[in-house]
Computed example of a mutant assay.
Amino acid sequence: MDEFNIQISIPIVRTFREDKYPQEIIKKALDNLIEATKQIRVSNNFFDNLKISMRRYSSMPKKFLKTPKAIFHLSDETVLVFSCKALIDYNAVAERVRSEEGFEEKYFGSVMDFGKDLVKFETIKLFKKSLDEVFILSHISTPGALKFRDGVLFIDNKFYEEYETLSGFVREAFEHCDSIKYPRIKHVSTQKLLTQIKSMDVGFKLTPTCQLEKALNCLSNVLNPRLDINEILMYSVIGLETLFVSGEQNIQKQIDENVQLLLGRLSSHKRIIKNLYNFRSKLFHGEFELKPYHYYRNELVDYIDDTDSKLYEACAFSTLILIATIQEMILTGRKELIYKTELTN
């Protein structure tokens, strides 16, 4: 039996002076993440219920400094290292591969080498998927508290590849919406959310079976680090329509009224939800001109006009509404949001 060891090192973005996020919440979110990580299990054709552990370091591990990401190293940065180990019988793996119909060494090379690569490929996929899902739940439990930079992945203490983390946009959205105090964000345990969704038998599924699962899938797309601001708005509003709209009539009104029924009444900025949907409609129907994305990518746009500002506000607000709604649904055990109209005297 051979030991197979995977480690992913992820730096946490430093908190600068102008960062308004409460430090005590960031610390609590890290503690919650450690506890939630203990619940992760990775299973595939080679082993069952592989546990993942997490350690926190006050500076970069030495082997991190020898990777391509070392150029971005900040000496006082906190680093999270996620690890899992498994004992693999590569001879048994090779026999399994050899027995597969159609495998020929003259085309695929050594059956032993092919089997080792297969173990690596399958395990890394599941490891990263499990981490991503815990990170998404962390954004739901303490929105924006943990903002990561891209990390690196090691196999048996050797650099294997870079690890792309989720978008840090939620931190920006939180700080933007905190100024208007809506939606009201709760800070809860990530472990509690993980336990709750397991008890509800919901999760991130290729074929979602309820509103909550559809909304979770929308949020996972919102957190794609490669999306531009227009795509973030698209996925977040799709999530809101999934949760708050029934039928094809009065969509704007349904979102406005139903969001406030669930998350509480707006005491100020009362048109912000309606403005959000108006902006979404203008964007999708081509009623204003978009700037070339690669101008932003290459920092060739050095100013923010009124359209940019409104787009950013719409994205921030719709993202936080989506997260607050998912959080509320998980905490109250709701898979669906069903609204009814009543006639009263």
Rank of each mutant, 00 (worst) to 15 (best):
E35P: 00
L322N: 10
L74K: 10
K62N: 03
E122T: 12
K128H: 03
S99R: 09
V237W: 07
L87W: 12
L212P: 04
R184L: 13
E299C: 03
I330A: 03
I323S: 10
N258Q: 14
L331G: 01
T123V: 10
Q191W: 03
L166Y: 01
E133N: 12
K63I: 15
T344M: 01
C210W: 05
I255F: 08
K62L: 13
E164T: 08
L331E: 06
A92D: 14
R297Y: 14
E213C: 07
Q252M: 15
D117T: 11
Q249V: 14
A173Q: 13
S220G: 09
Y339A: 13
V237S: 02
F148C: 06
A215E: 11
I272N: 14
S130L: 09
L80F: 13
T325H: 08
V13S: 15
M200W: 08
N91I: 07
Y339H: 15
N49V: 01
P208E: 10
F127V: 09
I326Y: 08
R265Q: 13
I180S: 11
L30D: 00
V301P: 01
V81N: 05
I255R: 03
H187K: 14
V301D: 07
F108L: 12
M1S: 14
R184Y: 11
K192H: 08
S267H: 07
F46R: 00
Q260I: 11
K340M: 08
Y163N: 05
L146Q: 03
S281D: 04
K27E: 15
S43L: 06
A36G: 10
G102Y: 00
G203Q: 03
K274V: 06
C315P: 00
K186W: 07
I272C: 15
Q260E: 15
V42T: 09
S199G: 00
E175I: 12
Q260V: 09
H269P: 01
E95W: 02
G286P: 01
K198T: 01
C315N: 06
F114H: 08
K186L: 14
T307K: 12
F114R: 01
Y107R: 01
F135P: 00
D2M: 01
I12F: 01
T207A: 05
A94C: 00
E3I: 07
V119W: 07
E122M: 09
F121P: 00
S236H: 04
S9R: 05
T242A: 06
F108Q: 06
K63D: 14
K340L: 09
K28D: 09
L311K: 08
F154T: 10
I88T: 07
V188W: 08
I238F: 10
N275K: 12
I251A: 07
P68K: 15
K335P: 00
R280N: 04
D305C: 02
S138C: 04
T207M: 05
Y277S: 06
L80Q: 01
P225V: 08
F16L: 12
H269V: 05
K106N: 08
M234L: 15
L146Y: 05
I34C: 03
Q249W: 05
T332F: 03
S318L: 07
Y293F: 14
L206I: 05
F279E: 02
M234V: 10
D76E: 15
I40V: 15
V134W: 00
D178E: 12
R171V: 15
I6K: 02
K63W: 11
Q249S: 11
Y182T: 00
F284K: 02
K205E: 15
G333H: 10
E24R: 13
N5Q: 02
